[in-house]
């Protein structure tokens, strides 16, 4: 009797592990340069600086707690004029009414001298 051998294919049971390799493609940063121009024509809407200075000084001199002789373009509200922070609030409020526009709180907090007041008002298009 002849013995028949059936050979099972070994490949049937082989398992191959496949590792997916992630490939990183570097992103190129595209930088956009925005060029902004401010029209010089807007400058015509601003008040004259010397006029603003005169009006600011006049306004501050009228303040009851202020010694008028100490008021000059370089005077500091607290250091030179002896005012406190509440007084500074009142002065800035008075300037709002004088020039007819509202100064937001974060800007108003920074104004503590004649010069800063003039600079802010002279560069504000809504000042009348």
């Amino acid at each position: 009797m002849a013995a028949s051998r059936s050979t099972l294919p070994l490949m049937k049971y082989l398992r191959v592990r496949v590792d997916a390799l992630p490939r990183n493609t570097p992103l190129t940063l595209a930088s956009n340069l925005l060029i902004r121009r401010f029209s010089e024509e807007v400058r015509g809407c601003f008040l004259d600086k010397s006029e603003v200075t005169d009006r600011v000084i006049s306004c501050v001199k009228n303040f009851q707690k202020v010694d008028p002789s100490k008021v000059n373009p370089n005077a500091h509200f607290q250091n030179d004029l002896g005012l406190d922070s509440l007084d500074s609030v009142e002065i800035v409020m008075a300037l709002e009414e004088e020039f007819g526009f509202e100064i937001p709180d974060n800007e108003a907090d920074k104004i503590n001298s004649i010069k800063l007041a003039v600079d802010f008002i002279a560069s504000h298009p809504q000042a009348k």
């Binding site: 922070s85 509440l86 609030v89 709180d105 108003a108």
Partner: peptide
Amino acid sequence: MQKQVLSLYRGFLR
């Protein structure tokens, strides 16, 4: 806190 106080003061004056 100082800013809040000044802001409140300004609010009353407004």
